[in-house]
């Protein structure tokens, strides 16, 4: 199987909504140094267990991750240069474009996901899989009617009665062999964006990204009655799972995902930096020297 991560640099450098965990200035981390530490540790932790790991990015991403930090991806792609004209607030587009590029079974992992074992094996053979799901319809309760009221030519794939029977997915990891489905899903997302780029300055793009990435997927799976495998088999209702249980590694926790505000939590940021320095000192030194030179 092909494992892939994606980095679209345009949202990274957008400081319109600094320090807001719904946006991706500095990748959602407090500063670039911590973002690069997290990304580096993510890559290296994944590569340890799933060596066939690739990066899809753009020219700036290549300059940072390939030329400067020298991360050991199996291959690098600059395909996200194609997104140059898209709105900087639409940070999930880089991920969706990457899914669209896949022509063979794949697993995409976010840059704030860290592995401590071959923990993905139970789901990798499934046609469709994701990290987890919940029944929290309220997370979309404002954005859903807003899009249908103010956006144009909204694809029918977004039509839904919000309900707690729908499984709302989290795509810290996402993938499978159902390539045709991924093509359909990503085309609907881009359809919405392409028809409404002019509306994105007026909207909370943080929530909007979750909407066209995760809500759309959840709704399509529900409408088409497709089953999917979930790394966390039970629903994450009421935050049942702790996705940052570093203290349970390795026995009860082998997967970490620094979702939203967790990217700004000092306890976890310290863990990332310390572990990177301890386990991969050469990469840490290279990264630290780069950041000091650039005063990041």
């Amino acid at each position: 199987m092909k494992f892939v991560q994606s980095f679209w640099s345009k949202p990274f450098f957008d400081d319109t909504f600094k320090n807001n965990w719904n946006f991706r200035h500095h990748g959602g981390f407090p500063n670039p140094f911590l973002f690069y530490c997290a990304w580096t540790y993510s890559c290296l932790s994944i590569k340890k267990y799933y060596p066939n790991l690739h990066l899809v990015t753009d020219d700036k991403g290549l300059e940072i991750f390939k030329d400067t930090l020298k991360l050991p991806y199996t291959s690098f792609s600059d395909s996200l240069n194609d997104l140059e004209d898209y709105h900087k607030g639409a940070w999930a587009l880089g991920k969706l474009y990457t899914y669209r590029l896949q022509k063979e079974p794949f697993c995409h992992l976010d840059g704030d996901v860290f592995l401590f074992e071959k923990v993905l094996d139970p789901v990798l053979k499934s046609p469709l899989f994701c990290q987890s799901y919940d029944h929290d319809q309220y997370q979309y309760s404002e954005i859903h009617p807003y899009v249908h009221q103010y956006f144009e030519n909204v694809p029918t794939a977004f039509e839904a009665e919000l309900s707690d029977t729908i499984k709302y997915v989290n795509v810290g990891i996402i993938g499978g062999s159902a390539i045709d489905f991924f093509q359909e899903y990503t085309s609907k997302a881009f359809e919405l964006i392409d028809e409404n780029q002019d509306k994105l300055d007026d909207i909370n793009t943080g929530l909007f990204n979750l909407y066209y990435e995760q809500f759309l997927l959840s709704n399509m799976l529900s409408v088409q009655k497709l089953t999917f495998a979930s790394l966390y088999p039970k629903p994450n209702d009421g935050n049942a799972y702790n996705f940052a249980a570093f203290h349970h590694i390795p026995h009860k926790s082998q997967y970490i995902h620094l979702i939203s505000h967790l990217k700004k939590t000092s306890e976890y940021l310290e863990q990332i930096v310390a572990r990177l320095r301890l386990e991969f000192p050469d990469y840490y030194v290279r990264l630290r020297d780069y950041c000091q030179k650039k005063a990041l």
Binding site: P30, N31, F33, L34, K264, S266, E267, L269, E270, V273
Partner: peptide, 9 residues
């Protein structure tokens, strides 16, 4: 306090 440039725990 922490050794990185973020808020104390």
């Amino acid at each position: 306090p922490t050794f990185i440039d973020v808020a104390p725990k």
